[in-house]
Write a protein that binds this DNA or RNA. Structure first.
Lengths: 194, 194, 194, 194
DNA sequence: AATGAATGAGGCTTCATTCAT
DNA sequence: AATGAATGAAGCCTCATTCAT
């Protein structure tokens, strides 16, 4: 599937992804042309199609890759923590920090969410993410015998809190990431029946 | 500014707005061409430009008009209610019901939010909406002597709750509007220090 | 051929001609739309086509009418002057004054001269004008026995002087019409062998 | 600013300029569509925009380039001639021959002169050309102590003679270029006080 | 691995003209 | 006489994609 690339080729490819991600985040998907992207790097148009089959597939790949990165960051941070509530807290804090540091990926997700062409990729991403959170929540429910709660709904609620606070408070509002994360953690712990 | 329109003209114009809104909501702004819109109505392309100066301006107008409609619905529902907390509750319930019934406008707002071309219009809309809510919140703060709280932040929080629950629970999740609204009201009343 | 018009109709028609002439002179023929013209008068588009069969025909008419007017002014000024050289001088002075006072018609002639669609009308106009001048010149030639000179060439030369001095000195340069006319007269009298 | 072009690219570009110049000269600027130009060469529409940013800019470029060419021809012809009057004569003859051989550029200048979109470029061109002539005239004035004459006015007069004789006698009238040039030279030498 | 060149469909918009009322 | 509405061809330009070198 994936082409073998030389070190130089991998570098070029990374440059293209980074440049495209920046422009997509700043101006949107359709308003960003392939010509814009390659012009930013000062290379010819052929380069783009050497590394990616199409502009649409590039955005799909950005969406998949960014989620993969975030997920790895979460797994590394969680390590072998045994308390499920603590794992949720770590995951949540990691998400907020990661989006605060990679704002273009947050913007790209918002933009893709309003575009039917990327719905399948986003749906798959969301299912994975919700599944991760749900596993922790189920353990919490078992531990605390909260048999009436729907773990999927709770997972959605947590993601909603993260999503909204990142956008309005951190990105738009410029507030301190750690403080906002503290508030989010407090809210979600209570929300999970603390 | 606004052209004089006959009854027939007003009807055509309304048809164009409705058709465009539906297609924008379903497929996005850029993927919807003016040709698509007029083809849906079986009229010539010139018709579009008789009523609107540009495709971009049409979406701006949809954004402004939809907010105006929602606001009127809220004002009618609030009537001369004197309790500020009750006014907030009515406004919130009205919003959720209105978006549940006019889902295309919700979709259009999401789509515009990811597009720099519509940022000015959305910002103006948001300032008006936040201002409305803030007026009620300030009265609540005075009544309850909650001098430490920032009314603007609280207003944002309330709008965030409405926004998110409408999207994930009502539109995506298909849950019952009144039940979701009950939850939102409960949360926001507690959030305002109830 | 020509429609019977009420007094009010004639007034409307004159307004349209004047408005169109101004816009043609200022912005050119193609860049001036019928919509521009009627909008200037605040009337509907149908009005234009009530009075003129097409935009192209309107410009043709402006060209013919303006030459007719200028010619009448010359004939009135010449009256029954018997000296052919004096008639030429009067015609020349009248031309320059008339163009100085009706600059839009000068601009329209320049513009039409660069447009093949109006070549036939302009050619007919020019033939009439050259013919007028030639008649006087022939008398001069007979009187002075200048049998070697070509009256048509001399007529062209005179028109060239008028044309050029009007454009560069009067219209572009803003110099005094009478002084420029004096110079033109002196030059042409010498040019005719004075 | 200017793109790097391969030999093939430069050839294509030259073809486009030549084709466009011919059509502009024959039919005018607005009546010539980009589709016409590329169809003449049997290439796709995109080719045009690979080489030029817009149709308007192409005409501007033609105006600038043609004046540059003429000016070079004059400078080459003048060489190191020391007599200013002789330099004026050489410049004038070169102009008339050049326009006789490149009639499309003469037509394009006329057409641009009636179009406000090209006024800035034409003004700049004219300033350069008038400046060239003025330098020679000033020397003539110093040599002959003609302190009362305005060099700029005289330069305009000379250009007017060239302009008019080229149009009416050479292009329209089909007369012999050298004979017309002789007459122009004689006239201008006398005009400069010979 | 990369480039400049080319394609051609399709997008937005304009406009002369026509027509029902 | 006049209007608002409509038409649809045509214009300029963009762009994802392909290709020869």
């Amino acid at each position: 599937m994936a082409k073998k690339l030389t070190a130089r080729g991998q570098h070029r490819r990374d440059q293209l992804v980074a440049t495209a991600a920046r422009r997509f985040a700043e101006h949107g998907y359709d308003p960003t042309s392939v010509a814009d992207i390659v012009a930013d790097l000062g290379v010819g148009k052929g380069v783009f199609y050497w590394y990616f089959p199409s502009k649409e597939e590039l955005l799909n790949e950005i969406l998949r890759a960014s989620q993969l990165e975030l997920r790895r960051a979460q797994q590394t941070a969680i390590g072998d923590e045994v308390d499920p509530l603590a794992r949720i807290e770590i995951g949540l804090r990691t998400s907020m920090r990661w989006f605060a540091q990679h704002r273009q990926y947050f913007a790209i997700q918002q933009l893709a969410a309003a575009d039917e062409r990327f719905a399948p990729t986003l749906r798959r991403n969301r299912e994975v993410a919700i599944g991760d959170t749900m596993r922790h929540i189920k353990e919490v429910i078992v531990e605390r015998e909260l048999v009436d709660d729907d773990p999927e709904l709770l997972a959605h609620a947590i993601h909603g809190v993260v999503d909204h606070l990142v956008r309005r408070c951190i990105i738009d509002g410029g507030e301190d990431t750690e403080q906002v994360a503290d508030a989010a953690v407090a809210f979600c712990r209570r929300g999970l029946g603390g």
